[in-house]
Simulated assay, not measured.
Amino acid sequence: MTRYAALLRGIMPSNPSMRNERLREVFEGLGLEQVGSVLASGNIVFTAEEQPASALEDRIQAGLKDGLGIAGGTIVRELAELRALLDSDPFPGLTHGRGTYLTATFLKDGALGEGAEPPRPPEQPDPLARVVGYDAQARAFLAVVDNSVPGRTPDLMTWLERSYGTDITTRTWLTVQRIVKKLEA
């Protein structure tokens, strides 16, 4: 058995169909075990037989659509991939805060196309957003965003969607840490 995290795209906790207890019910109905949620923004941890992430993504997405009418995307990562990402310390010396908002944008398996080389960090989309790298194992762009300028919100997510499509989802570094902690509990 393997521990996994499902990172769900487009979850709005104010929508009754998207609350954690409803999301967990779908996962349990799919026969997944040790199902838990992390925060109220579409982060579900679970245990399943080891299998390709893409198979789990398709199965979970079909269950969410059939059970709750949620058509957003599902991205799955194994605990080992997320643990290795944390252990790589991609933000050395930085602490998550308004001026250094640390993010990881995960790409869905296959989003780059079959046999595609892992992407290099793209040209910087905004002076307040700096992509610091790409982790091939976790299939994630890592970025530092400066949210401290009043009236100015860097729009890194829109830029990444234009560059790589909508089969992506972004989490703060703190959320990634919380997900790993829950997976290891």
Results as ranks from 00 to 15, higher is better:
T2N: 14
L8T: 04
L8S: 01
P13W: 08
S17R: 10
N20G: 09
E21L: 05
E21N: 09
R22T: 01
R24V: 03
V26L: 00
G29R: 04
L32V: 05
E33M: 02
Q34F: 01
V35Q: 07
G36I: 05
A40Y: 02
A40H: 02
G42M: 05
I44D: 00
V45R: 00
F46Y: 04
F46M: 07
E50M: 08
E50A: 14
P52L: 10
A53Q: 10
A53S: 14
A55M: 13
E57V: 15
Q61P: 00
A62P: 02
G63R: 01
L64Y: 07
L64M: 15
D66Y: 01
L68R: 05
L68P: 01
I70W: 02
I70T: 02
V76Q: 00
V76F: 00
R77F: 14
E78L: 13
A84M: 07
L85G: 03
L86E: 15
S88L: 08
D89T: 08
P90S: 09
P90G: 06
G93T: 04
L94F: 15
T95R: 14
T95Y: 09
T95A: 15
H96W: 06
G97P: 04
R98N: 14
R98C: 10
G99R: 14
G99K: 13
T105N: 10
L107E: 12
K108S: 13
D109V: 15
A111M: 06
L112Q: 08
E114Q: 15
E114K: 15
A116T: 08
P118T: 10
P119K: 11
P119V: 09
R120D: 13
R120F: 06
P121F: 09
D126K: 03
L128S: 08
Y134L: 04
Y134P: 08
D135C: 04
A136W: 12
R139E: 12
A140I: 11
F141D: 09
A143T: 14
D146R: 13
D146T: 10
S148H: 10
V149Q: 14
P150I: 12
P150N: 11
T158N: 12
E161R: 14
S163I: 04
G165K: 07
T166Y: 04
D167L: 10
L174P: 00
V176I: 15
Q177N: 07
R178M: 15
K182F: 07
K182R: 14
L183D: 07
A185N: 13
